[in-house]
Amino acid sequence: MRFDPVLAWGSMPALLDGALMTLLVTFTVMAVGGPLGLAVSFARMSRRRPLAWFGAAYVSVCRGAPSLILLYLIYNGLAQLDIVRDGPLWFLFQHAFFCVVIAFSLNHSGYIVEIMRGGMEAVPAGLLEAGASLGLSPRQVLWKIRIPIAIRYGLKAYQNEAMLFMKSTAAVSAVTLTDLTAAANEIFYMTYDPFTPIITAGAIYWVINNAMRIGFGLLERRLNRHLGLA
């Protein structure tokens, strides 16, 4: 086993291009999946049975399926359906990037629903009663008390999920998108060096992963700065 520093240095531009794609996918999915998850979490917690049932099914499917299958299903599978092919959005479904964003957003939002639900349920009932007794409307109690506290409770779980999902985007190479893993793979097939490109790519992932950790740490401290929790 050997590591070739010259090859590693030479591969940097291609790998960093790939890393950029990885980051682009990650942040786009966070931006799309976040609000989507929030919306579905309201359905999941709704008192209306069909809505709640839809939310539960959504979570089951989006969280239970590997993102790779969701990706195949959307990228290859939907093209088979006439409604999609004749629909107005067909031109979008032909783009790998668009399909990647949809597939991973479904997956990501499935986790967010459960994180939000856990957070909302963890808010002490006493706080909500206190809000109501002060004359806040149910809507105000929800938006001014329950959701802000639930987000603080859920942040740690969200951090774990976001970091896991960033790493899971490595699967996008399966639909021709050249992310960091795909870039490393291409270099392997050109050089047949099984170690250098993969280890270098791994190092870049490691840096992204830990940058996310630090970023979430800062965000948490900012959100909780007045709570006296370290």
Partner: peptide, 15 residues
């Protein structure tokens, strides 16, 4: 835990 499982899979498969 800092790198994707897919990368480790490739590493072991290729190398």
């Amino acid at each position: 835990t800092g790198v994707p499982s897919l990368l480790i899979i490739f590493l072991f498969y290729f190398g």
